[in-house]
Design a protein around this nucleic acid. Sequence first.
DNA 1: CTGTTAGCGCCTTCAT
DNA 2: ATGAAGGCGCTAACAG
Lengths: 352, 352
Amino acid sequence: MDKTLGDLHPRAAAEVPPRSSAKDVARLAGVSTATVSRALNLPQQVDPETLERVRHAIDKLRYVPHGAARALRSRRSQMVGAVVPSVDYALYARTTSALQAVLDAAGYAMVLAEHHYDVAQEVRVTEQLVRHGVDAFVFVGIYHDPALFTLLASHGKPYVLTWGVDPMHRHPAVGFDNRAATYAMTQYLIGLGHRHFGLLSAPVVDNDRATERGAGMRAALAQAGLALDEADARYGPIDLRAAANLMHEILARRPRPTAVVGTNDIFAVGGMLACREAGVRIPEDLSITGVDNTDLGATQTPPLTSIRTPVVEVGRAAGEEVIARLEGRPGEPSRTLPFEIVIRGSTAPPPR
Amino acid sequence: MDKTLGDLHPRAAAEVPPRSSAKDVARLAGVSTATVSRALNLPQQVDPETLERVRHAIDKLRYVPHGAARALRSRRSQMVGAVVPSVDYALYARTTSALQAVLDAAGYAMVLAEHHYDVAQEVRVTEQLVRHGVDAFVFVGIYHDPALFTLLASHGKPYVLTWGVDPMHRHPAVGFDNRAATYAMTQYLIGLGHRHFGLLSAPVVDNDRATERGAGMRAALAQAGLALDEADARYGPIDLRAAANLMHEILARRPRPTAVVGTNDIFAVGGMLACREAGVRIPEDLSITGVDNTDLGATQTPPLTSIRTPVVEVGRAAGEEVIARLEGRPGEPSRTLPFEIVIRGSTAPPPR
DNA sequence: CTGTTAGCGCCTTCAT
DNA sequence: ATGAAGGCGCTAACAG
């Protein structure tokens, strides 16, 4: 029917009945707007009978409080900004999801922004979120542009850093020790007999996770009297194909490393791809390891040795910490969560 | 130093200097707040010299406009709600990321909420976002609780549905034809000679993607005079281990299907895991296919035959559509984007 | 327990 | 090109 079809097109905002306000609810319930506000925010202070009348009016009018007005008056928007490099990396998505669940349960909305590993962009999007009125922030990583902290301080916004530990304890942080993770992994590889290592990493500039993970590997090597030849290290974007291409360069080295550490599972699996293409057998010819213990790594043939990092717990704990600060409770200055090596089929003693 | 350390603790909000307002900027620049507002929103109407003075004052005071006040006054918050089942599914994360980029470029903030495949929860979180003042919405999927549309209509919020097509054109939608995707895939398998099929799917209740993908498979079978025995179909959560367990049940069937269609790559890879565990060879003994063409599937041994769905394009287009509606432009009533079968090593003619 | 009152910070006529 | 003034919807302070 034409009439029906005509009705389907999105209507201009002007044609929509104006949304009802606290005043409308007050009128219908025969109370003042102050009582409506109290019914919503401090129901225990309202006479049960009045409360009932107000609630009925709210339902009838489909009243939903105007968040901006509330935020303006109460100086709290009940929104938290989550600023992450990219949710394309599955593990940041998991942390973000856990954070979202905690915030939602406490009545906070989560505003998400990405900066694609660009510290300047990170400051920019954070200022956008300040502009939009978010009350507090969660960031990924420990290192950030000093301008970011200036911005946060000048607006008095609480924040929590995640996915790392702040050695100086200058900022509240919830995370794990990235350096210790690759340190442990490298020690394990050394224990298997490996002496010649390669590294597949994200660019370390402005990226403390990558920096620390590389440092952990180098520290373990140094402790065993070994060293990483920079010619055996490759840096590139977190992308399977890019990682595979870098791995081909490592495979071309002579002598060739017998163990390659990826700073996360994407690099490691990209490396495995290159090995398949080049006919290099894992783990007989070459051992390879990742970090973050993704499904991607665990389902490879052979399955990838990796490190289970507590990404979900980080998101959850970050949510708790940021809410604590928002509600005036002190919160932990920092929380360091445990990781765990998961040994699978991609590692073995070196050939010969 | 103790003094320094003492300074590291998060300060209570009260100790923070009050953020500067347009009034402060006006005073410093020697103009009225109206001019400050114009300098920000209609700079071409302001004398260049005055503009310069105002901008200088803004920088000096680190002034950031108060979004809530602006939203209250202008009745637009410049925030868009993205309501997705879960960003844990990597593909929704990619769509969300693309959406975020488009919104950010246009000055909109993205508020993210998840509902974990619960339609009632979807209405609940959407109302939360309305409460927080978002101007418009993007949802995943075509089917939703009618109460959701009532809510949106009663608040006059524009919205766009994604990841599917609305056959009735009742709602603006940006997506692809899920049914056609599995239809094409099943036809391809039939062409290889398969006659006995299994299905690994998400629960279809309230999930149009799963429903349509299952329907596409059944339609292709019917067209070839075949049918899916419901005893060869299994439904469960989008989770590798869960999918593997369901696949073990299918593998126990006698006679056993020679081809199993997963409604996405997680199910298919979970299925491959079970086959490895059971010693069933792919593709010699059994063919298996996914949908969404993830890295997870592409890197398996053998690599998974799948369907490249335009998940990034969907996010981008949804952003454009929702912005168009927000800015009063009409926008397309719906956009259907193409998909593409990607044939890899997990499919072959049936045994014997 | 409830009503009255006074803004929160900004944008937007209406004047000038 | 700029200023003065009112009010968006709500909550906090103060009465009663």
